[in-house]
């Protein structure tokens, strides 16, 4: 930032991608450490950003730190490019970094996401940046940072399994549907951010670099390309993802994550892909669902 006095009030201009270069270097160091210790939550000096905490400040800082002038940025929220928060964050980088933006998963080099992993398989020249509200997978079992830090250090993850045990005892199956905990590279248990567990398998052995930023909690963690990511489970109750009974009503896709859309007040509803780019691309290719034009 620099300020110069023009007519009383300071004129304010910002650095490329908002953050100053020193801050970006600090964040990059945290990212490198996170990549070196997969799944480990690296504390970093998160800055205050011009958007509220909990609205993607961590993801925005990570994106700002990795973004170059030639990058092509895609921002999604709930899988969609046109949700208000995705629009706001994309607009932020268009304004402060003047980078090219896209809604196409294949064209993007950096994808910032909240709550989803794109359906289209990612490549090794892509970076997926997750917005993380609560980075600590043990937080709701043990609220104290001082204690959870110990548990991670000593790889004491019995408590996490107590939670899964309770699910099975009460419901007959594991009832965690999103933010489903994973073990990364056989060591750290990690919160994958509130993606549906449907997306968990996409994290395993992904060719793309996956970075996680939590601004309010000041933590960055990472899954390097081609890393083993295992969803926690029991031998006799293995991890399973949800399946949808019907294909996408617009593009006819099966095996994609679907949003429920309520059509009227008489119980009419349809299921459509939550990944809008994926759905549009399929429709352009001529695929049609039962309600597609």
């Amino acid at each position: 930032m620099s300020a110069s006095d023009v007519g009383g009030m300071p004129q304010i201009t910002y650095n490329f991608a908002y953050l100053d270069e020193q801050t970006k270097r600090m964040i990059r160091r945290a990212i490198l450490k996170a990549i070196a210790v997969p799944g480990y939550q690296v504390p970093f000096a998160a800055r205050e950003m011009p958007m509220p905490y909990g609205w993607g400040t961590g993801g925005v800082q990570v994106t700002a730190a990795v973004l170059g002038r030639d990058d092509v940025l895609k921002v999604i929220d709930q899988g969609a490019d046109d949700t208000t928060n995705a629009v706001a964050i994309r607009g932020f980088f268009e304004k402060t970094a003047r980078v090219a933006t896209t809604t196409s998963t294949t064209e993007a080099t950096v994808i910032q996401t909240r709550h989803r992993i794109p359906e289209t398989k990612l490549r090794e020249d892509q970076i997926l940046v997750y917005q993380v509200p609560i980075p600590e997978p043990l937080r709701f079992l043990e609220p104290r940072e001082t204690e959870t830090r110990q548990l991670h250090a000593l790889a004491e993850y019995g408590l996490m399994h107590v939670k899964l045990y309770e699910d099975i005892a009460r419901h007959g199956h594991i009832a965690t549907t999103y933010a489903y905990p994973v073990e990364v590279a056989g060591r750290y248990v990690m919160d994958p951010s509130p993606i549906p567990k449907f997306d968990n398998p996409k994290m395993d052995d992904s060719p793309a670099l996956q970075l996680f930023g939590a601004g309010r909690e000041k933590r960055i963690y990472a899954i390097p390309p081609h890393t083993k990511v295992r969803s926690l489970d029991f031998e006799d109750h293995p991890f399973k993802v949800q399946r949808f009974a019907k294909p996408c009503a617009l593009c006819g896709a099966t095996g994609a994550y679907l949003d429920e859309v309520i059509l009227d007040d008489k119980g009419g509803r349809m299921f459509v892909c939550s990944d809008t780019d994926f759905c549009n691309t399929r429709q352009e290719e001529g695929h049609r669902g039962e309600m597609g034009a």
Partner: peptide, 19 residues
């Protein structure tokens, strides 16, 4: 946590993974 979970916690802590 249920009685079963209370008793089972130590087992899970030492690596039991069969419900």
């Amino acid at each position: 946590v249920s009685a079963g979970g209370n008793v089972g916690e130590r087992l899970m802590a030492v690596g039991w993974r069969h419900y």
